[in-house]
Simulated assay, not measured.
Amino acid sequence: MSVHSEIKRVTTHILQEMKNRGEKISCLTAYDYSMARIVDAAGIDLILVGDSASNVMAGHETTLPITLDQMIYHATSVVKAVKRALVVVDIPFGSYQGNSSEALRSAIRIMKESGAHAVKMEGGSEIKESIVRVLSAGIPVMGHLGLTPQSIYKFGTYSVRAKEEEEADKLLEDAKMLEACGAFSVVLEKIPASLTKLVSESLTIPTVGIGAGADADGQILVVHDMLGINKEFKPRFLRRYADLDSIMNDAVKNYVKDVKAQDFPNEKESY
């Protein structure tokens, strides 16, 4: 019997056990029922309903425009499909920074209205109050350090973060702070692999990397990127596991051709 069939439901506790025994944690994003069903059935450990929905589902240039209502809509669709994975939802930009009671309200709405299992919040010491407030309500929080896309206008670039000693030191401090506050995990995005190793070894909670090398306790990619649906995005850290853009394009072309040639529907496909 495989490990996957034994686990009824992945919980934050199970992720912790996976780190403790050295088993890597597999994570992907999903934003809708059909995709989440496929990803979950394939045995993924954690599904992130990312604010990257702003880019891949809505066509925005950044993650900033997506609203709390839209995130709840995506999360609700995903939760309905998932039988095994832990479902984590991004609290979107503007719904928690600078106001801990708004952070709590946003997190409670996500949990109550979507049925998700945890929330993710970007940032370190600057949002500590919001993180503590959400955790105090019994809502599991996943942290996110390194390249934090909600702060893209502050950085002005999507390049690798924490290459300088000062920023690396702050990242390690922030990671330890997140653990001390009670976060169950932390995403490390686009940071040097050596720093990922240091952070992962310094924390007892699991780290999940994206563009952060092999030493994180888990890995996450955006599902549309790894399936090759979104071909424009080609960072070094992305491995494409399929070329769905070409497959879907060919399928639609063939459908158009058959309709024009009056080959579809045929007699068998009619009533």
Rank of each mutant, 00 (worst) to 15 (best):
G138R: 09
T76C: 00
P192L: 05
L48S: 08
P149V: 02
D45H: 15
Y153Q: 14
D45A: 01
T148V: 11
L28H: 07
F93K: 03
D215S: 13
I152A: 09
I139P: 10
E201I: 07
N249R: 15
V39E: 01
G228P: 12
G209E: 00
I205A: 01
T12A: 10
H60G: 01
K80I: 04
D215E: 15
T157D: 07
K231Q: 09
A183H: 06
A53T: 10
A36K: 04
I247T: 14
I139L: 12
E189V: 03
V187T: 02
K190I: 05
G59Y: 12
G98H: 01
H144N: 13
A251H: 03
L86Y: 09
P92W: 04
R84Y: 08
V222N: 05
Q262E: 07
I47T: 01
M57C: 11
A85Y: 08
G182M: 06
S136F: 00
R133W: 00
I14R: 03
I229M: 08
A36S: 06
L68K: 12
E179N: 10
A216C: 09
S26T: 13
K260D: 06
K24L: 09
F93M: 06
K268H: 11
F264P: 02
Q262W: 00
Q97P: 13
G156I: 05
V79Q: 04
P192F: 06
T12D: 00
K234W: 00
L238V: 15
G146Q: 07
L221P: 05
A212R: 10
A30W: 08
S101L: 11
G182Y: 01
I131G: 04
G43K: 15
K120E: 01
G115F: 01
R239V: 13
V199C: 04
R37I: 00
A58K: 12
A162T: 12
S101A: 05
M121H: 03
I7P: 15
Y33L: 11
I108L: 13
K163C: 10
Q262M: 03
S95A: 11
R236D: 12
